[in-house]
């Protein structure tokens, strides 16, 4: 599988990553070679094989519906790049 510059741009957009124009070719080359590696998967037929999402076949445990978290806004917002009136600020969102 070979990815070109356009593919890289599309994937980078979907992943919200800026890739500078100078680096696109290198990304395309590296990602293509990784995909070549990955494509060795097709050597084996997996028809009818159940996909495995977890190493252990256990069921989800349930938590009792109890509020135990307390307000830690100040501690959390200490890490915030831009905070005002308790809100996280981002560039204007246009709907």
């Amino acid at each position: 599988m070979s990815l070109d510059a356009d593919d890289v741009a599309k994937i980078a957009h979907l992943a919200r990553l800026e890739i500078s124009q100078d680096n696109v070719a290198e990304y395309a080359r590296n990602l293509s070679s990784i995909l070549d590696l990955v494509e060795q998967m097709s050597a084996v037929s997996t028809e009818g094989v159940e996909p495995m999402a977890h190493p252990l076949s256990l069921a989800q445990r349930l938590r009792p519906d109890v509020v135990t978290e307390t307000d830690q806004r100040d501690a959390f917002q200490h890490n915030g790049p831009q905070v005002e009136a308790g809100l996280y600020l981002v560039p204007k969102v246009i709907e």
Binding site: R63, D65, V66, V67, T68, E69, D71, Q72, R73, F76, Q77, A85, G86, L87, Y88
Partner: peptide
């Protein structure tokens, strides 16, 4: 209408001060 959130133990009460009921 649960007391706590679906995946955390923070309160679901409506109308609190911004981000005071948002846990880690």
């Amino acid at each position: 209408a649960t007391q706590s959130k679906i995946f955390s133990a923070a309160s679901t009460a409506y109308g609190a001060e911004p981000n005071t009921q948002a846990c880690a």
